[in-house]
Design a protein around this nucleic acid. Structure first.
Lengths: 343, 343
DNA sequence: GTGAAAGCGCTAACAT
DNA sequence: ATGTTAGCGCTTTCAC
């Protein structure tokens, strides 16, 4: 029962490999990283020894001495949000191409947890952080950006100094939705608005502007979902009661609520009412009728975020704020208004 | 233009704080970690200096010297799978309670990427790994388990030595589904089976056993979705053509395919056909009619996984394989069979 | 081509 | 109560 009798073999170090191969640890380091300056024979011997011992380099030690980790941190508000996860995929793809490893930290829809997780990433000495969340205070982001390059994907309340952003053009998305409905012949187009977050506000603004541009200012009608869940249903019901023939909803979930209420009220889409959502989540492909929705180029946004991060690592100092244009995906939830309802 | 003119201030170290506070770095280390043995006054001075410099401890350095990182790695196949993400939430909750930080690594439905990500976690010296995936080869898991405690959530092809598992009882879930349908008066109950993965196979086996136990062995009918996407629709259509009054589907997506085909065929659920899914994903709450589905206790499974991990860290060596019982959530997609169809 | 030695930022054991 | 010292595992000069 000596001390050496441990269940888990202690992890072999570079010194163990050096001993096994009969060389110095410097040579092992060089050989393992494929640097030149090591003879074929020695290199082969070292690789074999490493293989035999099941050696894996210790990233902590390497990071400590090199001052960089080749780690990219991605902080996200909500794993369950498919919009977020697809942005993450974009980040991952492009990061992998450049040899970075991506680690995810999850804020679970809690601002203080988000802050803690960001801190954890910084303590880990990641080489850069992509924040897929608009929940963090600008000061927190700015503080992080003083340590390491930071890019946020989304529309912030206010730009944080030193933090690049990638967002979609919510006004343009709203405009595409409203124009699509108008082109179908709708005039009584209502908007089911979201919370007061910047993205929601921009969509509502885009709706109003487009209605005005179309000469439909008098038809403008905005209902807010108050309470995010029950409010959605109530607002949807209210909208339908007012005789609008089309609804542009702030997101797919809100659109779904309209779809459901309309169905119950005997005005199922698209015959009874036309509905457009936003975000083009998997929901849009799932519900009946399939939902017409505004699509943010999520993968591209993720890739762009990685790109901005690398630019900053490469020395750029000025801020960049990229805005991408969304596109409308037309499906079965929109059609011409019922006869006799126009005007 | 001297070298000191860098854009990003070099991160302050414990030595900087020590200098600023006029003490030795050991005292700073003690004070920052709240150890006793530091006088009130000195401690206050140190904390103030740290605050002023914006000091954050370097986890790499700490991990290196302590031999542990208080990091838990979670490896998952697919971020977009809500089943996975809720398990992750369970892990996170319980890990946080014990002071661990959870880092996620994403395999993106690619076995080789999963393997690489697992490797990355090990190189980071995480103190334990939860694998929410059944895609990894047992040898890969076993190798990881030799380095660090590993728990997998899901039903593996084969148990990997040294790896604990947490799974739900797929046979019991299938039985609950079939009995529910039988209780409603159905006899012609078909099964829409999944791929050949262990979970799918167990659900199919549970279906067959229960049909036999109910004296309905003669009614047994299993259709496999071959190709995961198009096959689903084809199989659903085939099932409906055979006059079954109820379908137990291997998962919610397959159930949705049946719902859709039934709707098109003028046999909308629950009047035309009853449908039960598996996993109780958010889909079940979203589609019309709401889907009756077997619910795995995902949060509990996640918490249990963390518990097993900590037990192993605490010294347990024997393997444990926990199986949790799922429950049926009855919603609107199931009802008594149409009159005249029984027998 | 190879080895010896310094040191990344931190904690822990040992002084004082 | 405070300071000194020796590493953790690795990379990186700098000798040989």
């Amino acid at each position: 029962m000596t001390k050496g009798e441990e269940r888990r073999a202690p992890r072999p170090t570079i010194v163990d490999v050096a001993a096994a191969a009969g060389v110095s640890k410097s040579l092992v380091s060089l050989a393992l990283r494929g640097e030149h300056g090591v003879s074929e024979a020695t290199s082969a011997r070292i690789l074999a020894a490493a293989e035999r011992l099941g050696y894996r380099s210790n990233m902590l030690a390497r990071g400590l001495v090199q001052g960089r980790t080749m780690l990219l941190g991605v902080l996200l508000t909500d794993l369950a949000n498919p919009y977020h996860t697809e942005v993450v995929s974009g980040v991952e793809e492009s990061a992998e191409e450049r040899g970075f490893t991506v680690l995810l930290a999850h804020g679970r829809r809690d601002r203080s947890r988000l802050t803690r997780q960001l801190d954890a990433l910084l303590q880990l000495n990641v080489d850069g952080v992509v924040v897929v969340s608009s929940w963090l205070e600008p000061e927190v982001l700015a503080a992080a950006a003083r340590r390491v390059p930071v890019v946020m994907v989304g529309r912030p309340e206010a730009f944080a100094p030193g933090v690049d952003t990638v967002a979609n053009d919510d006004r343009a998305g709203a405009e595409a939705a409203v124009r699509h409905l108008a082109d179908l012949g709708h005039e009584r187009i209502a908007h089911l608005a979201g919370t007061g977050r910047p993205a929601s506000r921009a969509r509502a603004a885009g709706y109003r502007e487009t209605m005005r541009a179309l000469g439909l200012a008098g038809r403008t009608a905005v209902h807010g979902v108050g309470d995010p869940v029950r409010g959605r249903d109530r607002a949807a019901a209210a909208l339908l009661g007012e005789g609008h023939t089309a609804v542009f909803a702030v997101n797919d979930l809100a659109a779904l609520a309209v779809l459901d209420r309309a169905h119950e009220a005997g005005r199922a889409a698209p015959g009874g009412v036309s509905v457009v959502g936003y975000d083009n989540t998997s929901l849009a492909e799932t519900v009946r009728p399939r939902l017409t929705s505004v699509d943010q180029p999520r993968l591209v946004m993720g890739r762009l975020a990685t790109g901005l991060l690398l630019e900053r690592m490469g020395g750029r100092t000025g801020e960049r704020h990229e805005v991408l244009t969304p596109s409308l995906v037309v499906r079965g939830s929109t059609a011409a208004p019922p006869r006799g309802t126009t005007g």
